[in-house]
């Protein structure tokens, strides 16, 4: 009986070790692990960790920024630009990202100016500089204030209090609407893939999505393009009014 108990205990222990060991191997590395690899100048390892995190669906401005650095250190300008562009989507006013993106862009073969300065770009940088959920929480706060203003308005006994309730209700209602719309736009800005970066050199942009189709023009690594749509193999792109098709593997979506 004692012998049987000992065997059971050993079995349980072995199982625990096996499961624990497996879980240690399967654990996702952290951003700190990648950073540590980068600091120790093991750029391929850093890139591997960052890429794994991105593959798992994680994102943050820091993750993409560091990924951009790692790509740059491994000599991949196009993917480096892609990562900085992704980082800039999450934190458009980050100077480090802007600086490195400008620096790496200068080293790209194609120097195509397809920036679109305007009110929209300015608004993006102004409104989307806070953390990703800032506007969502702000809209909730304004919603609460709006509700309190409504209560004040309907429960007020004097016309003065009613006017105050109405004024505050209008103000907070407008703020709720504005912050909710901004939150929606911010989410779209981060998650919508309407632009892409060419990640290979000498990419022949085709007239139609067929391998034998004629070349329309050629792009090189780092060129930023608008994505118009596509299928499982090809993506239709547009750059400064020129459109064409490229292989899906040659363009990474921002």
């Amino acid at each position: 009986m004692t012998h049987l108990k000992n065997r059971t205990l050993v079995t349980v222990l072995l199982l625990w070790v096996a499961v624990n060991g497996f879980s240690v191997r399967a654990a996702t590395p952290t951003l700190s692990d990648g950073n540590a690899a980068y600091v120790s100048e093991d750029y391929p390892r850093a890139l591997e960790i960052y890429s794994e995190l991105i593959g798992e669906g994680y994102f943050s401005a820091e993750l993409f920024y560091n990924t951009g650095n790692a790509y740059y250190r491994t000599g991949d300008i196009g993917k480096s630009i892609w990562a900085y562009e992704k980082a800039l989507r999450i934190d458009p006013s980050n100077e480090d990202i802007q600086s490195n993106l400008a620096f790496v862009n200068n080293q790209a073969i194609d120097q195509i100016d397809n920036s679109k300065p305007g009110v929209g770009t300015w608004l993006q940088s102004v409104l989307f500089f806070p953390k990703v959920n800032f506007w969502s929480w702000t809209s909730l706060g304004f919603s609460l204030l709006f509700a309190l203003s409504l209560i004040l308005y309907f429960s007020a006994k004097t016309s003065r209090k009613k006017s105050l309730g109405l004024l505050l209700g209008g103000l907070f209602g407008g703020c709720t609407l504005f912050s909710a719309i901004t939150a929606h736009q911010h989410k779209l800005f981060i998650t919508e893939h309407n632009q892409g970066i060419i990640v290979a050199d000498d990419v022949h942009v085709k007239v139609s999505p067929v391998e034998k189709s004629k070349d329309s023009f050629t792009l090189n690594s780092g060129s930023k393009v608008q994505l118009l749509g596509g299928n499982d193999e090809w993506m239709q792109i547009e750059i400064n009014g020129n459109t064409g098709w490229v292989k899906l593997s040659k363009v990474w979506m921002i």
């Binding site: 994102f59 943050s60 993750l63 959920n133 506007w135 929480w137 939150a183 929606h184 981060i190």
Partner: peptide, 12 residues
């Protein structure tokens, strides 16, 4: 040590 987000973490 920034917080890594996933798409589900977007509150909106």
């Amino acid at each position: 040590e920034s917080l890594l987000l996933q798409e589900d973490d977007l509150f909106f």
